[in-house]
Design a protein around this nucleic acid. Structure first.
Lengths: 240, 240
DNA sequence: CGGCATATTGAAAACTATCAACGGCAGTGG
DNA sequence: CCACTGCCGTTGATAGTTTTCAATATGCCG
């Protein structure tokens, strides 16, 4: 198993997520600058923290490989999951202006994260309008995404929207692959959606019975996307 | 009653919401620039639209006076309210990068809105690092705010968090006044929180019976803030 | 003074959480 | 290598919450 540590050498140019990440839409000088900004990779072992809530914000991270969950702890000690992140996602954005991390983030599997030093990055936005524009776009996209994960009202709607959200994001990252690995547990999904884990499990079973999804252990696949959208509540025209 | 129209002459310098709005923390050259950027005020009558979903984004708006609701319409024709805005709030932020409004917004009462032409404003961010910094701070604040309105799970938690949210924002705007005017209807609150209007009404009555709030017609007041926070779920350390 | 939107209340139905028990699987340590 | 342990997923029964439906006030605006 890998240990959490810092490693060197990484390149945006050869990254498989560059069509989603910070570098998207950047032209030559901006892109090169960004590529040079990211010098180090942080390796994080499954279950380890990427950062802790209230710690000073030193960098944003771009997920290069793996997945993680973002959460806070309520007054009763419950883990309240706020987001899941996958390759190409930037984590820490909501924490920039307070200069401290607003949440905890832990790896759901062994991860590789590109370190984006925050001060260098803020300077880059001033120097390169394209980078500013891209950052605003990512921020906007995050606002829309975070909103879209909270549209469902009933448990059925929430679960349907959640599965479609995951399926869509995985499709962006690997269009050829229909089978998705759900790296988070059902308990994690329950905490994220604010419903009981048993309810999640029962809805999964119903969806399996209706042949709308396939799910075995962590292996997940949407079989009938139209039907799943009908069960959900999300306005898909707003996302694409 | 006022008609929806454009009016002239407005000044950030004398605005009562300048400690909350775009101009907050700006020093002399940036502040003056911002002040000059905002040339016109849009007057919107109660129930009229400020903008329509999917229309091209021409400007952001700063609420100068009044309040409004932001919403979209789901596939069944239900109005899904995503936010309420009050003086000093900037509306349209989530729509910047797509260059079209992502939601409908209508006035809950007669309003005065400062028009922030989007192209001029984007240029200002390049020219004045302070304005960029302030915009990033507002964007961050919005992300945190939008998140904080979605932490509650049970109906009681949602209503408690909602009332505290409103009370806190009104206190920022008018610290001396304990009595708050709830400009939105109970049906609006229901649509916003994703629970039935009858449930809202019953929880309001329970809170009144317990002397935690006072509520008569639109006039609202928190009588026991500590108790209301206990009923809610929000982590208040993250907001202040 | 209507007429319509909003607020209120009760009763029943639907939904979801909770509690409890069990099976399977993976990682740990002997 | 195997037994042990703990986490995760599964299922049923029950309790609790919330929605829905229906009927009745209340209040505001023209």
């Amino acid at each position: 198993m890998i240990k959490t540590r810092i490693s060197k050498n990484i390149s945006c140019i050869s990254c498989s997520a560059k069509h989603l990440c910070l570098g998207k839409d950047l032209t030559s000088p901006s892109f090169s600058h960004l590529d040079q900004l990211i010098k180090n990779v942080k390796l994080v072992a499954k279950k380890d923290h990427i950062y802790h809530m209230n710690h000073p914000l030193t960098s944003l991270y771009a997920v290069h490989q793996g997945s993680c969950k973002e959460y806070w702890i309520d007054e009763n000690g419950n883990e309240c999951i706020t987001n899941f992140y996958f390759p190409g996602d930037i984590i820490g954005i909501e924490s920039v202006s307070k200069q401290k991390y607003m949440f905890y983030t832990t790896a759901l599997e062994d991860m590789e994260l590109c370190i984006i030093p925050i001060n260098d990055f803020l300077e880059s936005m001033h120097a390169f309008p394209e980078i500013l524009k891209r950052f605003l776009a990512i921020t906007n996209q995050k606002m829309q995404h975070d909103h879209s994960t909270r549209t469902g009202i009933t448990a059925n709607e929430k679960v349907s929207d959640f599965l479609l959200n995951i399926a869509r994001r995985m499709h962006e990252r690997n269009p050829g692959e229909k089978e998705i690995c759900l790296t988070m547990s059902q308990v994690d999904i329950a905490n994220f959606l604010g419903i009981a884990a048993e309810t999640i499990n029962r809805i999964f079973n119903t969806l399996k019975r209706k042949k709308i999804i396939k799910l075995k252990s962590k292996k997940f696949e949407v079989l009938n996307i139209a039907e799943l959208q009908k069960l959900g509540r999300l306005d898909y025209t707003k996302i694409y």
